[in-house]
Design a protein around this nucleic acid. Structure first.
Lengths: 240, 240
DNA sequence: AAGTGGTCTAGACCACGGC
DNA sequence: CCGTGGTCTAGACCACTTC
């Protein structure tokens, strides 16, 4: 019998969707057994290879864990290390409220370093957005974002104080954010930053230079951030 | 016909090995086309599904890239962001020589923080290994490693000044290193560290606390490192 | 022995891209 | 049109784990 895409979706994806739904709904919890290949094949009226494919791909995505001779089980929810998240998202994931004060939001022509990071000519017009980030009522970071002014002209008309910049880029500009390359080092607070962050001068700060790319690999935004090292910890996981 | 494992290795892995070997030998370069599924099936006398499996898994590992209607191609060499590498390996990948001076290498019982990071009782015996790392003749980092003394008793008899600690763990102790969780922040150099690293006191430093795990998830080593921020940049890539 | 995942066959049709 | 990868069948045997 030939392939039958009842709704245009491959059979193995339909099977995956059913399993994912059960996990999301809480019917299947981490450690619970998922139906075996043979059961899935019977239930969904597909061959063993197809049922198998569905589970193999779920394993690759880290959704399930397979053990020969035992079965397939829902994997423990993965900790999202190294995940590219906006400040708003990070705060939300800890059930905290994000607050930030916009210090500067204008188009500028003399930002050659930012332009270079965005792969633009040195004197290009870029949007410069400088914000102090707060957590728990205290300032903890100074972040300056740069974007191509030609591409995001309407951005400065948006209420940046309240809305998430990531959200605006994704919703209003239909940009699919993909990854970010970051350079991390330590530096001392200069008088200007010290005042903004309410810390003594020369206090050590974490400095992060971040170029955020779309999923297609185009440089979208350059962010230069200074973080109070007494309040901010960068946590990453590396693999061998 | 039943399965035939000519040398105990599954057919799809044999096919993968042949392709990998050609890539490693430089016969296949990035962008070059790999034999199609049908060709591989004929060449290796396997079914299409098996040849397909071989290519699908190579794609999953990032070795090749598959394009429907076009073919399968050797993928561009991936940049190894966030890769867990020893100091020796990092230097080697930049064609530099690693040098380090051992300041301290003894068993200690009063390292409760290190013990905790290694999931050991607070007063456990741990091996403490303190080294100054050099690059280009200049000191740039102070690293202190802690390991379970009960498990790595013979370690202190090894010439640690010359051999890579990672290499010793992998070769002599048959440990398969898996991943590391790191906490990064900024701190100021105290007089002791300042002298060791030949920098002024209170100079900002990158501080990295790193717990290195085996591939089975067991904590193997805790490393506390201080890095001159004028010489050392942490580069990471995060994904959304 | 029974059940699980792992590998494999010898075909098939579909969807896509280039000629 | 032809060759590519993508999906799929209806079985099979192997290796492993539990009972």
């Amino acid at each position: 019998m030939p392939v039958k895409n009842r709704n245009g979706m491959p059979a193995y994806q339909r099977i995956q969707a059913v399993i994912r739904k059960r996990i999301d709904a809480g019917q299947l919890r981490p450690g619970d057994a998922v139906a075996s290949e043979r059961d899935l094949a019977k239930i969904h009226q597909v061959s063993l290879m197809t049922a198998r494919h569905a589970l193999a791909y779920l394993e690759r995505e880290g959704i399930v864990e397979r053990r020969r001779g035992i079965g397939t089980f829902v994997a423990a929810p993965k900790i999202h290390f190294n995940k590219l998240m906006s400040y708003t998202e990070q705060m939300a994931s800890r059930s905290l409220t994000a607050a930030s004060k916009v210090l500067f939001a204008k188009v500028s022509e003399n930002e050659s370093e930012a332009a270079a990071r965005l792969s633009l000519p040195p004197t290009s017009s870029v949007i410069k957005l400088e914000r102090v980030r707060h957590a728990g009522g205290e300032p903890f970071a100074l972040e300056t974002c740069y974007l191509n002014a030609a591409e995001f002209s309407g951005l400065l008309d948006t209420p940046l104080g309240r809305e998430s910049l990531f959200g605006i880029l994704e919703r209003n500009y239909k940009i699919e954010l993909g990854y970010a390359d970051e350079e991390v080092d330590a530096t001392a607070a200069d008088p200007h930053i010290a005042e903004l962050l309410s810390i003594p001068r020369r206090e050590p700060l974490l400095r992060i230079r971040q170029v955020i790319y779309s999923s297609k690999g185009k440089a979208i935004m350059y962010v230069l951030g200074f973080y109070r090292s007494d309040r901010h910890n960068l946590v990453i996981r590396r693999f061998r």
